[in-house]
């Protein structure tokens, strides 16, 4: 199993203790195309943050590709994120003063890949996503769909074990949304990339092959 969550609990202590995840147990196999659905406040974002090693959990175990992800130092966390996880965000989160190709290169920069090599790889990925001509453009010169495709290229470039997408179509119009979802489905099919998509949109969820519903911190698949 690629992802193995065992009885994950998470409580936020902002004034009043808030028990967000109440014993999540979940397994995801390599190559799956999964959506996590839930209303706002259901705990789906917290679950995504834990899966993405952006946040830690209180009790339970999180095994990612045979590695126990628990009590990591900041540096280890950064290293695992870099090598094992690709992120796609609702608001794209591209760095505004870097060109498309520079944005795609960035994860490789943090792996210490040489300048020339990472540039070549980034160009290759942009080409595959049909953005070769936009390589030297800045994010504010591109449409939402193009920006999201740059973000997808950035997520793919390190060959991560999983791709975590947080409302990837949330900021896109319906036509572009369909295109982006088709692209993700195609990448899953052709590249065998494990995709986990967090959404509240049933049409997005319907594109995936498995839907995990979360409500009040409990999974009701």
């Amino acid at each position: 199993m690629l992802i193995d969550l065992k009885d994950i609990n998470k409580t936020y202590n902002n004034g009043q203790p808030l028990h967000v995840l109440k014993g999540i147990t979940l397994g995801i196999e390599a190559g799956e195309f999964v959506s996590i659905m839930g209303a706002s406040g259901s705990g789906k974002s917290t679950l995504l943050n834990i899966l993405g090693i952006l946040d830690n959990y209180d009790t339970g175990e999180y095994w990612l590709d045979g590695t126990l992800i628990k009590n990591l130092s900041e540096r280890q966390g950064a290293d695992y994120r870099n090598r094992m996880i690709g992120f796609i965000f609702q608001s794209f989160n591209l760095i505004s003063f870097k060109t498309a190709v520079e944005n795609v290169e960035l994860p490789l920069f943090y792996q210490g890949v040489s300048r020339r090599k990472r540039h070549a790889m980034a160009m290759e990925y942009l080409d595959r996503l049909g953005l070769k001509d936009w390589a030297s453009h800045y994010p504010n010169e591109m449409s939402g769909g193009q920006k999201q495709r740059v973000a997808i290229a950035r997520a793919l470039i390190t060959h991560p074990r999983i791709i975590l997408a947080d409302e990837p179509t949330g900021a896109l119009d319906s036509k572009t949304s369909v295109e982006v979802m088709d692209l993700l489905a195609q990448l899953n099919r052709e590249e065998k990339v494990t995709m986990i998509i967090v959404t509240h949109d049933p049409t997005v969820a319907s594109k995936t092959r498995r839907t995990i519903r979360i409500k009040d911190g409990i999974i009701e698949e």
């Binding site: 993405g52 540096r75 950064a78 994120r81 992120f87 989160n93 960035l106 943090y110 792996q111």
Partner: peptide
Amino acid sequence: HEFGIRKAIGASP
């Protein structure tokens, strides 16, 4: 915000 992005994609402190 930018540093947050960098950290998410693997920048060490």
